[in-house]
Design a protein around this nucleic acid. Structure first.
Length: 904
DNA sequence: CTCTCCCGCCACCCG
DNA sequence: CGGGTGGCGGGAGAG
């Protein structure tokens, strides 16, 4: 119960907080019926450990407080404010009334501006009283206060796929305070989430968090409803007329039945009260209903693109309101609100459609499309993916990646910085003990996908071309307009860019939106014992909206028909997009991009956009303890990396919090890695003797995320490298999940990211973050702002026996790429370095020629195993694994398990 | 200028 | 009646 108060008070003054806590609780209890619920206190999922922590918590230190991790971060950052500010905060925290008053004054706003806080704080301290002025200057920008960003922060607090057993309760009050916004804003978010059944109202001021488990069902239902409503026809109709707002006449639109009350019922809200509203009642106009209808429009749309004006018109029509301009404007506003939330959920992205009338704001559905067959379950996408591999660009990159993979073996976690989400890999504190078999590393890729996609898409020409293609294809469909993807003003909006979705191949049908557990490597038993809960929870891979499948040793076969036998038509379509001609379109940008792209020129321009700051970085969490300390501050502080928090960092469970913290830290680090200063080259590849189990290397988990990664593909090594020899657990990065991220074919010259899972010596630089195990290479030169991440060890040792059958060619050339750089430092790749490759393609080619490394036999074997869909559950292997490794995992979570070591 | 959409007033409900 | 909800639209930031 006391927990609820923790957020603000703790941050401000731990001790005081305690005292006041009790008091406030009492008040709250009286005022509301709510706060008592402890569960809500744990936004991140409560897990076995949690209880312990809570009980132990005598002192509510931000760091300690398991409940509000996010907040903690904020706090720390915010603390640095001027004394005055702190005082106000304190006061406001203590008294709701005061708080409200202060809020009105805008005092609370700073909280929102987490990103800047860190930086600001420094200045403020110096400034002193004048801080206020400073503050004004640095007042959070509009974007920083956007609903989308807020929503992301909100979502970050909760696991996308909470365990069935865990009941997370959301206290609006608490959330509002913790996020530093007024409750009103939370309503907006919650209402939309509720419309998708991600949450449900359980009591006054209290919501229950359900996560995305039922999202597919909900979408399916909405799709059906949308079809029944004939929204598609309506949209087409409206589109044809091209009526402008003023001309719009309702009479002209065909009304295919009024959804009104019906809709609500159909929606099947858990709460009965929702359906009680009468047509055109207040509720009928609720954001919830609007949100559902909006989603329906996407689901029924062939192009999955919906312009706001069309949506608004349809909504107005259905609401039976008198059509007028102001109504329209209001509707559009609401749609933006909804869109922001949906965007943060990675369900839609901002685009623009071009018509004779000019550009129109629109959104494109990037969420799951085909959820009819499976509920958010992992699907075997191998078939669809493989074809894709054939693409040239993709192929090149692929090859490159492949070689490296085979050559170097394992990868660590890939993480993005900035807006991109970080992928957290949780891992046992001391990973490198292969001796102990049962352990598993968990990788949380969850929102990673979302993160990646943003950046990538942004730059990817493909996206544009794809869009165009869509248009052309669309033909008579309601959206007969050219689409041009763009970032939207809304911060969130640009975060979500995905090209992949456009590709049929990627059809989200396969979107995983699920969790996958990958037992990458054996974990020492002791480790497990130490953190049983963690492991359980951690051993999940979140791959929302991503297709996932395993690739055996070399991908070269990827395209192989056999595996792709089932290859659906979609996959076949994909290729076209890659090389899609950029039809001369109004979008100059597109053309430019494309050209540059083709030329392999680093598109500096593009980089400038956003990508540049978001390098992909490998994350090697070290000890939790170490990372923890700086994690909070850093994560929030750096604007670029700040996204981490925003991003769905939400660990599956609270237990993971530490880990996540680490991850955050790492992310931050990685971002910093860009900084040349970091070149501590100490790390030597030497350690990474992956010699032992190359076999393991051969196995990879291929994660393709149409929606999520936006063209990025991640390869996760199925087995963990045995590098174990390494340093004490403390020094070693906590997790080592080998993984590789490959740019999608559409991406063009993209960064290949992979990290060997090998333990790397910590960089000598004291100032630097300890976690720098993996090397983060940023490739500024690349148009796409690609970043290449390589673990030093892996990279460097060409000799490593890693690949038994290693490709000959590989050895010859391999050193070329990365090794040189690596040797020097793990930081940034230099332009000159081969790796840097302004022209990744060229490099790739070289590598391509060589043949795949891994033995085919092995591949096959693995394939069978790997390609099984976790979701299917039919796979015995998975089953058994699951049992062993994560008993905690709920059935709901789908986990894909990979044999820790290949042929071994 | 248009697009976005924050902000918060205040009506609607519910207990 | 008080307080939670949340519709609504003015108005301003961003582009």
């Amino acid at each position: 119960m006391e927990v609820n108060c923790l957020t603000l008070k703790d941050l401000i003054n731990p001790k005081q907080a305690r005292l006041e806590l009790a008091i406030e609780d009492g008040e709250n209890a009286q005022k509301e019926n709510i706060f008592v619920d402890r569960s809500r206190m744990a936004p991140k999922t409560p897990i076995k450990n949690e209880p312990i922590d809570l009980s132990k918590q005598k002192i509510f230190t931000p760091e300690r407080n398991p409940i509000t991790p996010v907040k903690l971060v904020d706090r720390q950052q915010t603390e640095p404010w001027t004394p005055t500010a702190n005082l106000k905060m304190l006061i406001s925290a203590a008294s709701p009334d005061i708080r409200d008053r202060e809020k009105k004054k805008g005092l609370f706003r700073p909280i929102e501006n987490k990103d800047d806080v860190f930086t600001d704080s420094l200045q403020l301290d110096i400034v002193g009283d004048s801080a206020v002025d400073e503050f004004e200057k640095q007042r959070p920008s509009r974007k920083q206060k956007s609903l989308g960003l807020l929503c992301q922060k909100f979502l970050a607090r909760y696991p996308s796929y909470p365990l069935s057993t865990e009941k997370t309760t959301i206290s609006l009050d608490e959330v509002a305070v913790s996020l530093g916004v007024e409750r009103r804003r939370i309503y907006d978010i919650v209402n939309v989430l509720e419309s998708l059944h991600l949450v449900s109202r359980v009591a006054k001021n209290q919501y229950g968090w359900h996560g995305r488990h039922s999202l597919p069902k909900t979408l399916r239902t909405l799709q059906r409803l949308g079809e029944e409503q004939k929204y598609e026809e309506q949209m087409a109709h409206l589109q044809q007329k091209e009526l402008d707002l003023m001309d719009y006449k309702f009479g002209e639109h065909r009304k295919n039945g009024y959804p009104d009350s019906q809709d609500q019922q159909l929606l099947d809200f858990s709460e009965p009260d929702y359906s009680s509203s009468s047509a055109n009642s207040r509720k009928d106009k609720s954001l919830r209903i609007m949100s559902q209808k909006f989603v329906m429009l996407f689901l029924v749309s062939k192009t999955k693109i919906v312009t706001l004006d069309v949506a608004a018109k349809i909504l107005i029509e259905e609401s039976q309101d008198t059509p007028d301009h102001s109504k329209f404007k209001t509707k559009v506003r609401r749609l933006y609100d909804i869109a922001n939330v949906l965007t943060s959920l990675a369900l839609i992205k901002k685009v623009h459609v071009t018509e004779e009338r000019g550009r129109k704001p629109a959104f494109k559905w990037i969420g799951p499309v085909d959820f009819s067959s499976s509920d958010d379950e992992l699907v075997d996408v191998s078939a669809s993916v493989l074809p894709e591999l054939k693409r040239e660009t993709y192929g090149k990159i692929q090859v490159c990646a492949r070689q490296r993979l085979t050559r170097y073996g394992s990868f660590n976690t890939v993480q993005t910085s900035e807006r991109m989400e970080r992928k957290v890999i949780s891992e046992p504190s001391s990973p490198y003990r292969k001796e102990q078999g049962s352990g598993g590393y968990s990788l949380e890729i969850g929102s990673l996908a979302a993160v990646y996609r943003q950046k990538i898409e942004d730059n990817s020409h493909e996206s544009t071309s794809v869009s165009k293609r869509v248009v052309s294809t669309a033909g008579s469909s309601e959206t007969g307009f050219p689409v041009d993807s763009e970032y939207c003003v809304n911060p969130l909006a640009h975060q979500v860019f995905s090209v992949a979705q456009d590709l049929p191949t990627f059809s989200m049908q396969n979107s995983l939106n699920g969790q996958v557990g990958i037992p990458l490597a054996p974990v020492s038993s002791d480790v497990e014992s130490m953190k049983p809960p963690l492991l359980a929870g951690q051993s999940l891979v979140y791959v929302p909206s991503t297709s996932l499948f395993m690739l055996c040793a070399s991908l070269r076969e990827g395209p192989s028909p056999e595996s792709g036998s089932e290859g659906d038509g979609r996959s076949s379509e994909i290729p076209a997009t890659a090389e899609l001609s950029l039809t001369p379109s109004s979008q100059k940008r597109l053309c430019e991009d494309k050209k540059s792209w083709e030329e392999h020129e680093p598109a500096t321009k593009r980089q400038s956009r956003e990508l540049e700051d978001s390098p992909l970085s490998l994350v090697l969490p070290k000890k939790p303890s170490d990372s923890i300390e700086f994690a909070p501050g850093k994560s929030m502080g750096n604007r670029g990396s700040a996204s981490l928090e925003d991003t769905h960092v939400h660990g599956p469970h609270p237990a993971a919090e530490e880990v996540s913290g680490n991850a955050t830290a790492n992310c931050f680090v990685s971002s910093e890695c860009e900084n040349p200063s970091r070149n501590t080259d100490t790390e030597k590849p030497s350690k990474g003797n992956e010699s032992t189990k190359e076999a393991s290397l051969l196995q990879y988990l291929y994660v393709q995320s149409p929606a999520g990664l936006n063209g990025f593909h991640a390869l996760l090594s199925g087995s963990q490298t045995p590098h174990s020899v390494g340093p004490p657990s403390g020094q070693l990065p906590s997790f080592s999940v080998p993984c590789m991220v490959l740019p999608s074919p559409t991406m063009g010259p993209f960064p290949v990211v992979y990290s060997p899972a090998m333990p790397v010596p910590i960089s000598s630089a004291p100032g630097t973050l300890p976690n720098t195990g993996p090397v983060n290479f940023s490739l500024p030169g690349l148009g796409s702002a690609a970043h290449l991440l390589i673990s030093p060890a892996a990279m460097i040792n060409p000799k490593s026996s890693t690949l038994p059958s290693a490709d000959p060619q590989f050895q010859g050339q391999p050193s070329l790429h990365l090794s040189p750089v690596m040797a020097r430092s793990h930081n940034v790749i230099q332009p000159e370095s081969p790796v840097y490759i302004g022209h990744p393609a060229s490099v790739v080619k070289l590598q391509q020629s060589p043949v795949p490394v891994t033995p085919k036999s092995m591949r096959r074997t693995h394939r069978e195993t790997f390609f099984k869909t976790p979701g299917s559950l039919g796979d015995p292997v998975l089953r058994s694994r699951e049992r062993n490794q994560s008993r905690n995992t709920s059935s709901a979570q789908r986990r894909l398990e990979i044999p820790s070591s290949g042929p071994d």
